[in-house]
Design a protein around this nucleic acid. Structure first.
Length: 418
RNA sequence: GUGGGUGUCGUCAAGCGGUUAAGACCCUGGGUUGUGGCUCCAGUAUACGAGAGUUCGAAUCUCUCCACCCACCCCA
């Protein structure tokens, strides 16, 4: 037997309606805010990600699906923003007027070890706004995420926000933090030692008691923000208050992708095990320039669809499955078969969802089939009906049955479904 | 890459050295040679993750491997 590759999942018919519903809600929400969809390839030149995301990041260093073909190095997208940024530049979308507001739905690929809420192929809803360096844009992006989560039934995801500064103040903070930690460098755990150069901010939320102790009283990013970043963060908080979105300032939010600046935010759920973030985003004022485009600020988020569905399931908020049909036609006997087939075709032409038993089973089995499929009505055509020129119409919900002249059945049903 | 856990029919799940390897659900058929959901009856299995070993005898003990899950790391 050939099995599915590790870290991927089939989305089975019994679950697919949840995806469709989530997608529909996301599209509607994004369009409410004036966003339009953009679709970019799953494969991009590897260089796009190493330059955009940063070649020191874990994602780029060890998690990308990279392959060589015809002498070019290509990679499966590990996240959505870089591709959209590339397209923005390549198609000169900035010439269409700013801000540019896009949404997308895409699979992403990261070669990671599986665990709850983490797969190698996963799916994201995403939003990007290019062109505005104002906090109104950040607030709108966060509002959209909040709106969407609420619409889909998630009301207990907590918004955490932070500012990770701009390259200027971040460098200064980094230095201050390293200076603070350096005397105790030898006592840090091994992972923190490796973080020391690469991402010292991570040391602050290390779980090792020893590291926590060392980190006590460490300087705070928020205290090192430059004037510009400081006032921007204050403004963002004020705007969130205007929108009435509750949030918590969480200095522990750090971004693993290099392109982030200033605003960093996450929606966190306690229903996801250790992968608590369902939606993560922030501002990336240097990405477009770094990719070779005109200096253009940006802000956006990625929202994990699998995680979203996990939360819905864990909180009993899953939408219920829709029925797969409205009506089932049962033909009994050879003489009625043709009439049943014709009627089925006509009903479908009227826009009614109708099934007919293509296994030619007995009547009892056909009713079972109708019941399972969620058909509200069953239309029976047999010898009795043929002789009388009628069909039997059974309402499965209340077990009532009546005879309807054969010529009128379409109209009767169309009144309900057409 | 480093830990921990789990593997018995399509699914859930008993069994813990000797059983025809329970049971339930699902599925199929029947009780009404033309009527579902409830009920009753019947039917269906090359199911003990794989391979070695111990033993008169292994789903049950040992070893190795594999798969899946969870945690670290990182992130959606």
């Amino acid at each position: 037997m050939i099995s599915i590759p590790k870290g991927t999942k089939d989305i089975l018919p019994k679950d697919v309606y949840k995806w469709q519903l989530a997608e529909e809600t996301f599209r509607k929400t994004a369009e409410k805010y004036g966003f339009t969809e953009i679709r970019t390839p799953i494969i991009e030149h590897t260089e796009l990600f190493s330059r955009g995301i940063g070649d020191t990041t874990d994602v780029v260093q060890k998690e990308m699906y990279t392959f060589e073909i015809a002498g070019r190095s290509l990679s499966l997208k590990p996240e959505g923003t870089a591709g959209v940024g590339r397209s923005f530049i390549e198609n000169k979308l900035y010439a269409d007027g700013l801000p540019a507001k896009y949404y997308y739905i895409t699979p992403c690929y990261r070669y990671e070890k599986m665990q709850k809420g983490r797969q190698r192929e996963f799916h994201q809803f995403g939003i990007e706004v290019f062109g505005s360096d104002k906090m109104m844009a950040d607030a709108e992006v966060i509002l959209l995420a909040y709106d969407f989560l609420t619409s889909v039934g998630i009301d207990d995801a907590k918004l955490h926000i932070n500012s990770i500064g701009c390259p200027k103040c971040r460098a200064e903070y980094r230095k201050a933090l390293q200076d603070f930690l350096r005397p105790n460098y030898d006592r840090l755990c091994d992972t923190c030692k490796s973080r020391f150069e690469r991402n010292p901010m991570r040391i602050l939320d290390c779980k090792s008691p020893e590291c926590q102790k060392i980190a006590e009283g460490a300087p705070h990013m928020l205290d090192y923000l430059c004037e510009d970043c400081r006032s921007a963060f204050d403004e963002l908080k004020a705007l969130l208050d205007v929108y009435g979105i509750p949030y918590e300032v969480d200095p522990g939010i750090v971004r693993g992708l290099d392109y982030y600046t200033k605003t960093a935010f996450e929606f966190i759920s306690d229903k996801l095990g250790s992968q608590a973030t369902v939606c993560g985003g922030g501002r990336y004022d240097n990405l477009i320039e770094q990719l070779g485009g005109p200096a253009t600020p940006g802000v956006g988020f990625g929202l994990g669809i699998e995680r979203l569905l996990l939360i819905l399931e864990a909180s009993g908020k899953e939408p219920k499955a829709p029925s797969v049909c409205d009506v089932m036609v049962c033909g009994l006997g050879e003489s009625a078969k043709e009439a049943a087939l014709k009627l089925t075709k006509q009903m479908r032409e009227s826009g009614i969802r109708v099934i007919i038993d293509v296994m030619e089973r007995g009547l009892k089995a056909q009713f079972k089939y109708a019941d399972r499929a969620g058909a509200r009505y069953v239309v029976v055509i047999g010898d009795d009906e043929m002789a009388k020129g009628v069909v039997s119409l059974r309402d499965m919900a209340n077990s009532s049955q009546q005879e309807v002249p054969a010529g009128e059945i379409i109209d009767v049903l169309r009144r309900v479904y057409g």
